[in-house]
């Protein structure tokens, strides 16, 4: 089922075109990572889906039903930028306030959410005394209130320490797998997104420029070896015995890229010499999602 589907979504803010023909589809159970620089339009797109901002043209369909958009939005839990709370109320009181507001009858959900984000022991402390990380975790507890079917999280790990980031990551994966909650997430910590995302959408200057699955991303990132030989085609034939053909890419200037292949220079040299091929250069590279993104954006800007 298509949990989120946007069609030709356009938004103008004053004179700038902040969302350009966005066609985004997120299926049930996916963890879709929105990746882009500041001002790329990630937050605006998320706000548009939640209903916090209006678009001048285009359509949003939630849970495969365009007609009841308003009601379907109630099935979304979200964190947009920094979550807003009353500083003079405690964490428990803040969540209780939102529980009443959302018409959730079960009182136990508040404590359950607090336990889920590991804030139960701090529940009586005033929000004013919470650290940024604690506020983010409380924001996540709020997003989880009322068992949503879709989570929209804009920078949920903002201000959280390394340990907290791992906890949040594990929690998101857990709720995605156990409760089948679909997640649309953005973060500047791309390594975190690479760890949890099942789909990656790249945004640049208000446009959705590329969508890749986790498998596709894995092919484009990870460890790779770049070699330079006299006869690339012959080298590919000789290497096919040792690795998957799909992971070999011939590039200009007699270069060959070997993806997901870890081997030392000496062993590779020996393999090639058996086929009378001389190895001119050998470089090991580790391409992360961040590298891929930066390279991709650079190419986009050059075009």
């Amino acid at each position: 089922m298509e949990v989120i589907k946007t069609k030709q979504l356009n938004k103008y803010f004053k004179k700038s075109h902040v969302l350009k023909d966005i066609n985004l589809t997120v299926h049930k159970g996916e963890i879709c990572a929105l990746i882009g620089k500041n001002g790329a339009g990630k937050t605006t797109l998320m706000k548009a889906i939640i209903g916090l901002t209006n678009c001048q043209s285009g359509a949003i369909t939630l849970f495969g039903d365009q007609e009841y958009l308003k009601y379907n939005r109630l099935r979304i839990g979200s964190i947009i930028e920094t979550p807003g709370f009353y500083p003079y109320l405690s964490g428990l009181e803040n969540l209780e306030y939102f529980r009443i507001q959302r018409g959730i009858l079960e009182k136990g959900v508040v404590e359950e959410s607090l336990k889920m984000v590991d804030l139960y022991d701090e529940r009586h402390k005033k929000i004013g005394s919470y650290s940024l990380g604690m506020k983010q975790r409380l924001g996540l507890a709020l997003a989880l209130l009322g068992s949503p079917d879709l989570l929209i999280l804009d920078e949920p790990t903002n201000g959280i320490d390394a340990e907290g980031i791992v906890e949040i990551r594990n929690l998101l994966v857990k709720i995605n797998q156990e409760k089948h909650i679909t997640i649309l997430i953005s973060s500047h910590i791309l390594a975190e997104l690479a760890n949890i995302g099942t789909k990656f959408c790249f945004m640049h200057k208000g446009a959705l420029i590329k969508e890749v699955t986790a498998t596709q991303l894995q092919e484009m990132t990870g460890n790779r070896i770049i070699i330079q030989v006299e006869e690339p085609k012959a080298a590919v034939v000789s290497l096919e015995k040792y690795m998957d053909f799909n992971n070999i890419e011939i590039q200009p200037n007699h270069k060959i890229v070997l993806k997901e292949f870890d081997v030392s220079k000496n062993i590779l040299e020996k393999i090639l010499i058996q086929h009378d091929i001389k190895l001119n250069s050998f470089t090991k590279q580790s391409v992360t999602l961040e590298d891929y993104f930066l390279e991709f954006i650079k190419e986009e800007e050059n075009e």
């Binding site: 706000k47 939640i50 209903g51 916090l52 308003k70 009601y71 939005r73 109630l74 979304i76 979200s78 947009i80 930028e81 920094t82 979550p83 807003g84 709370f85 009353y86 939102f98 507001q101 959302r102 709020l142």
Partner: peptide
């Protein structure tokens, strides 16, 4: 009265 972030939080609840 509420801050913008609080208003956003409330508006996202369908209010």
């Amino acid at each position: 009265t509420k801050s913008v972030t609080l208003q956003q939080e409330i508006l996202s609840s369908g209010i």
